[in-house]
Amino acid sequence: MNMQFHEPTAVSNTAAKASPIHVSAVSKIFKTRTGEEVTALADTTFKLASGEFVSIVGPSGCGKSTVMRIIAGLIEPSQGAVLLGKEVVTAPSPEIGIAFQKAVLLPWLSVERNIALPAELEGKMSRGEIADRVERLLAMVRLKGNAKRFPGELSGGMQQRVSIARALMTQPSVLLMDEPFGALDALTREHMHDELLAIWEQGHPTVVFITHDIAEAVYLSDRVLVMAARPGRIIADIEIDLPRPRRASLRGESRFAALGAEIRDLIPH
C-alpha cells in the first residue's frame, strides 16, 4: 500500500502483486416469482493471470453481469467457486475495486468525498493519505479543480470518471468494471479507453471488463471472452495479439477490424 511513497513520480494503483482470478465450474440459477428456475450462468470456467486485462462480451441477458457479481462476492454462485489468488471468494474482498454501469455517486458528497468513500469506509488510511490519494486520482481521471463540486453539477462522463477514481481509491489489485462507459457518447468513450489503459499500465491490476461493445473489448483487452445467452455460457476465448501500448490509430488497422469481425461472427443473433 505504501509503494507510492517509495516512487513518488509514479501513481501506483495496486498493492504488491495483482491476484489471478480462477472462476471454477461456476453456475447460477435464479428462481423467478412463479417458481421457475432460470439458468443465468451454466458451468463456467476461466482463468485470468495476474495483471491480465480480460473483457467479457455478449448480448444482453447472457449473464455477463452475473459473472462479475459472483467474482465481486456480491452474489453467491449456485455451484462452483471463484478463487482470488488462493482465497475462495465468499464476500466482497478489499482487494477488489468495482465500477458499475451507472456511476452511483452519492449526491450529498462532493467529488473528493465520493472518491474517498471506499477508504473512509475501510478506515485504514489516515486523513493525509486519503487527501493525497484523492488528489492523485483526480489528476489521473482529469478532474483536477472539480474536487469540491457535487455530482449533480457534473456531466455523465465526468460522473463516470469519478466512479472509476473511486474504484481505484484503495489501490485494488483487481478491477471489475461492468459496462462503465456504456452511457457515454462515442468520443468521450474513446478518450476514457486511453485513460483506463494508462491507469492499467501504471499498476497492472487484473481487470475484468464487461461490455457489449466489441471494438471496446478488442481495443482494451489481452483476451476477450465471448458469452451466449440461455443458458449464459462462454463460447469463445479470443487472444488479442495487438501490440501495447495501444493508440487510437490502432482502430483503423486491419488486424483490429479482423479481430472485431471474428468476435462479431461468434455472437449469436
Binding site: 456480491l74 464476500a91 466482497p92 478489499p94 458499475f100 452511483v104 452519492l106 469506509l121
Partner: peptide, 26 residues
C-alpha cells in the same frame, strides 16, 4: 435507497452502521 446504492455500500464492505449513517440517513 436504490439497489445500486445498497450494492455500492456492500461492494465497499460498509458495515450496517456505516450504511445507515452514510447512506440511508441522507
Amino acid at each position: 435507497t436504490s439497489e445500486d446504492q445498497i450494492e455500492l455500500m456492500k461492494a465497499y464492505r460498509a458495515s450496517r452502521w456505516q450504511t445507515l449513517v452514510r447512506l440511508k440517513a441522507y
